[in-house]
């Protein structure tokens, strides 16, 4: 079941762009961060922890790393620090942070 966004969409006019989350199309407002776009899209988890617990963006200022998401194939991106782009491909991370493509947690 899809959980409705926990936020009211602003009445302000804005250009929209299209991205996908785990293959599902998502309409986002241009200029938003990935984390804001996902929070506006649904109230669901944007990530599962190593123990399978649901999480979503939390601090919105780059501190907590709960908004980690795969962006265009790059894992462990801070969703609150990355802007949406048309055609962006997002994937929810499930389980432990993976070391992919030479990327590694410090």
């Amino acid at each position: 079941m899809k959980i409705a966004s926990r936020f009211l969409t602003p009445p302000e006019p804005a250009a929209t762009i299209q991205l996908t989350l785990d293959g599902e199309p998502v309409t986002a407002r241009a200029g938003d961060t990935v984390a804001a776009a996902l929070l506006a899209h649904s109230g669901d988890a944007s990530r599962l922890t190593a123990r399978g617990a649901p999480r979503t963006a939390f601090c919105m200022m780059g501190v907590c790393f709960d908004c980690l998401v795969e962006v265009d194939g790059r894992p462990n991106c801070q969703g609150c620090m990355v802007q949406v782009r048309d055609g962006m491909v997002l994937r929810r991370q499930r389980g432990p942070r993976k070391l992919m493509g030479g990327a590694q947690d410090a």
Binding site: R6, F7, P10, G31, A36, P54, C59, M60, M61
Partner: peptide, 26 residues
């Protein structure tokens, strides 16, 4: 406090400032 739907109040305020998103029935 780790559940989606629990968030720092200041984080919601950042969303108001940066995206115009408004907390719903919070």
């Amino acid at each position: 406090w780790t559940l989606p739907g629990v968030m720092p109040a200041g984080a919601a305020q950042i969303l108001m400032k940066t995206s115009g998103l408004l907390p719903r029935d919070a």
